[in-house]
């Protein structure tokens, strides 16, 4: 139920956007709960985007983990 998947916004018209989930799947998603621009990734649950993914944070997490694991 809380399954939510990331996708990239390819087109936006008001409260609705077309989101590309990869493998050729495009879906219409309600983006009224987030502030998003074309090209950004959103987390989509039950037809609504619930957050914009922070790509910088994603990179930073991966970097921090490597650092943490090196420390043991």
């Amino acid at each position: 139920m809380c399954l939510a998947i990331p996708g990239r916004v390819v087109e936006k018209r008001g409260e609705l956007a077309r989101v590309d989930f990869g493998d050729g799947t495009l879906r219409e998603v309600d983006v009224s709960l987030v502030e998003v621009e074309v090209g950004q990734y959103v987390i989509v649950h039950a037809g609504f985007a619930i957050q914009v993914l922070d790509e910088e944070e994603a990179r930073e997490s991966l970097r921090l983990w490597q650092e943490l694991l090196s420390q043991g």
Binding site: M1, S32, A46
Partner: peptide, 13 residues
């Protein structure tokens, strides 16, 4: 309408 806080905003809006 079932679901936790992940789903509830879609019902609210």
């Amino acid at each position: 309408a079932i679901g936790f806080e992940t789903t509830a905003p879609s019902t609210a809006i």
